[in-house]
């Protein structure tokens, strides 16, 4: 084997690379945070796309729609007392908990594009806060049940009879709510006892985050 002469372009490449490196020394490192910009967040907050009404939620539950996942963001004690059928409990305070590997513990549920998550709390506030946190993290498919459980009780469990002169629409809705009320076992329309919710709970299985792609030579 002969010793090849050192090529001129090696000098050139070395100089170029060192120069680029020198430049990088002074360029600021941009710390990108993968969050929604305030303008876009405002836009999403002001439009009401994120809401499901209690009627819609009731319908989805009754139809047994497999594409929705109800998520109760109240405390475990409250969840234990009463929860919607098929709901799982992820308390707002724990929503950003990390597992031992530093991933978000609930990310399997919250950051996915298969199911439609619908959050609810007693009112709308906690559910909205949850939604906003996840919106800022750019997690898709998260929605809020408008009015929360208070509205749920008011509209589904104890629907109010419209006045007799009311439009047909209102009557149709009332009929649906009456049926739903019976379905959810909150007693009949007449009963005011609504603490007997359907206690059937889905087992909570934590989903594993997808493993990244490994590389190698």
């Amino acid at each position: 084997m002969n010793t090849a002469p050192i090529k001129k372009r090696y000098y050139f490449i070395s100089a170029l690379v060192i120069m680029l490196g020198f430049l990088l020394l002074f360029l600021p490192f941009r710390k990108n945070v993968n969050q929604l910009s305030p303008e876009n967040l405002l836009l999403s907050i002001t439009n009401n796309d994120r809401f499901y009404t209690t009627d819609e939620v009731a319908k989805l539950i009754i139809l047994g729609d497999p594409s929705i996942q109800l998520i109760d963001v109240r405390t475990p004690e409250e969840f234990e007392k009463y929860s919607l059928q098929g709901a799982i409990n992820i308390p707002l305070a724990n929503i950003l908990d990390e597992d031992e590997e530093g991933y978000l513990e609930w990310e399997g549920y919250l950051n996915q594009d298969i199911k439609t998550n619908i959050f609810y709390s007693n009112g709308s506030v906690y559910a909205n806060q949850t939604w906003m946190l996840l919106k800022r993290l750019n997690f898709p498919n998260n929605y809020v049940m408008k009015g929360g459980l208070n509205k749920w009780v008011e509209t589904i469990m104890r629907p109010e009879k419209p006045v007799s002169s009311a439009e047909d629409d209102l009557w149709t809705r009332y009929e649906f709510r009456k049926g739903a009320s019976i379905y959810f076992g909150g007693g009949s329309v007449l009963s005011s006892d609504n603490t007997q919710g359907n206690k059937k709970k889905a087992p909570i299985k934590k989903k594993k985050k997808k493993a990244g792609v490994d590389g190698g030579c």
């Binding site: 360029l27 490192f29 941009r30 990108n32 993968n34 590997e101 990244g212």
Partner: peptide, 26 residues
């Protein structure tokens, strides 16, 4: 290695690549 490292840092500077989203093997 040098090409991709330098390229990535410049891309980051130009806002073309979000460094935090790159997968790092544990």
């Amino acid at each position: 290695v040098l090409t991709s490292a330098i390229g990535l840092l410049f891309f980051n500077y130009l806002g073309w690549v979000d460094y935090d989203l790159l997968y790092v093997n544990p």
